[in-house]
């Protein structure tokens, strides 16, 4: 804010000082220059010849994908069921581990801010920093291909997600409700279950169905690396250039995700 005096003596107000204005414009200039430089960099590493004929290539691929081979769907029900189960069991496992972890990580419920909380936070960050697909790659090597690797991959990624969002919700509760129960002479465990759990219940339900919804989508690709589910059929179909089958798989995945979105929206609406 800059206040100065006009020649006639009335106060003048500007949002910034002239110096501040100049700095803001300089900042925009730097931003634009950076964007141009980046585009130059990307352009140098692109074979534009392949890009120019992208429309033909795309049209060609779509042409090969139609008409879809709908009979193939009969072979997909089982993998699709596996996919949904992987997502659901993975989410359940993540809840079992993530919920206690959240209480250990939240500032107001952790047994020790110095010792326990940092460990819990590191576990959460470690879990969140690695994508399910990479967890699956590693687990397929350790456990062999199949649904178990997929379930664990989903769980490992989801633990951090659920624990992080839940511990943030725990830290935002109304402390006077907790104070009131403490004042009755309730024990620490009673204060937790009577004062804190009811307050974070809506957040917990929302987080869990949201993650389940994400996990259904993630589970559809885990098969690409051998971790079970419909992704395995997708990989096989692409490798054999069976494009009409790929179309059927895409359609089924789209339908499944739509259903899971609808379910999670209903659950969230019902609880909040």
């Amino acid at each position: 804010m800059a206040v100065s005096t006009a020649p006639d003596g009335t106060p003048l107000w500007r949002r910034r000082t002239p110096r501040g204005d100049l700095l803001v414009w300089l900042g925009w200039l730097c931003g634009v220059a950076l964007a141009v430089a980046c585009f130059q960099f990307i352009s140098d590493r692109t074979i534009w010849m392949f890009v120019w004929d992208a429309p033909q290539q795309g049209a060609d691929l779509v042409g090969r994908m139609f008409p879809p081979r709908w009979e193939y769907a009969h072979q997909l029900w089982k993998p699709l069921w596996d996919t949904v189960n992987m997502a659901t069991l993975g989410t359940a496992l993540a809840v079992v581990i993530g919920v206690p972890l959240a209480f250990l990580a939240a500032h107001n419920t952790t047994p020790s801010v110095v010792l326990v909380r940092p460990v819990a936070l590191i576990v959460i960050v470690a879990s969140r920093s690695i994508n399910s697909l990479i967890w699956a790659l590693v687990l397929v090597i350790i456990l062999g291909p199949g649904e178990l690797a997929g379930i664990l991959a989903i769980a490992l990624r989801s633990i951090g997600f659920i624990a992080k969002l839940l511990y943030e919700a725990i830290e935002e509760i109304d402390p006077t409700q907790v104070e009131a129960l403490t004042a009755t002479g309730a024990s620490g465990a009673q204060v937790l279950t009577w004062g804190i759990v009811p307050q974070v219940m809506p957040a917990f339900a929302g987080i869990t169905v949201f993650r389940w919804d994400i996990n259904i989508r993630e589970a559809t690709v885990l098969g690409l690396v051998g971790a079970g589910g419909i992704g395995m059929q997708l990989e096989a179909s692409i490798n054999t250039l069976a494009w009409p089958q790929v179309t059927v798989i895409f359609a089924l995945i789209l339908a499944t995700v739509l259903v899971s979105e609808w379910v999670s929206a209903r659950v969230r609406h019902h609880i909040i």
Binding site: D174, T176, Q177, E179, A180, L181, T184, G185, A186, S187, A189, Q190, T193, W194, G195, P198, Q199, M201, P202
Partner: peptide, 23 residues
């Protein structure tokens, strides 16, 4: 008031007995 908002009136009233009740 500091009532536990998402619990029922009866649960809030009975929470006054938590100090006398097992977990």
């Amino acid at each position: 008031y500091a009532l536990v908002e998402r619990l029922s009136v009866m649960e809030n009233v009975l929470s006054g007995r938590l100090g006398y009740t097992g977990f």
